[in-house]
């Protein structure tokens, strides 16, 4: 692929901001609009931009494909694991009140962990799909 100087310079400037914004949306989702679904999609959009500008092989060096598969599964495991943890503490499945010292703290911790699991799975799944489609075109 022919490198395009303007695209590369602009992308280098924009991509860190996108990742920072994704993290903000992820962890500020309790107070403003946002949450795991949005953050995961924005995060994967940053990496898709990177691989569109710098090429697929460079992008795969940063996030190898087998890592993505592990991460996609890890998100679901974190989510389901929070449920199992609340079961072991004596509550109902996915009832977060027992996770913290008081019910409010427990709910906060539970929601944070669950959203983290959602974000990881969504980001990894979107990247897996993009790399599958883009990699198919390579001979």
């Amino acid at each position: 692929m022919r490198p395009n100087l303007i695209l590369q310079v602009v992308a280098k400037f924009v991509i860190p901001l996108m990742i920072l914004f994704a993290l903000y949306v992820q962890f500020h989702g309790d107070f403003g609009p946002g949450g795991g679904f949005q953050a995961g999609v924005i995060f994967s959009a940053a990496f898709i931009l990177y691989s569109l500008v710098f090429g697929l092989d460079t992008a795969e060096k940063i996030i190898p494909a087998h890592w993505l598969r592990i991460l996609a599964a890890l998100g679901v495991v974190i989510y389901a694991g929070v449920g199992v943890a609340s079961l072991l503490l004596g509550g109902n499945y996915l009832d977060y009140t027992l996770l913290g010292s008081n019910p409010i703290a427990g709910q906060h911790l539970g929601i944070l962990l669950v959203e983290l699991g959602v974000g990881i799975t969504v980001a990894a799944a979107m990247l897996i799909m993009f790399f599958a489609f883009a990699g198919r075109g390579r001979e």
């Binding site: 949450g35 679904f37 995961g40 999609v41 969504v122 799944a125 979107m126 799909m129 599958a132 489609f133």
Partner: peptide
């Protein structure tokens, strides 16, 4: 709808595959 949108793009990707 929030969850439906993300699930929608996942199923669209499956259809495109």
């Amino acid at each position: 709808i929030l969850t439906a949108i993300v699930v929608g793009v996942a199923t669209t990707a499956l259809a495109l595959a």
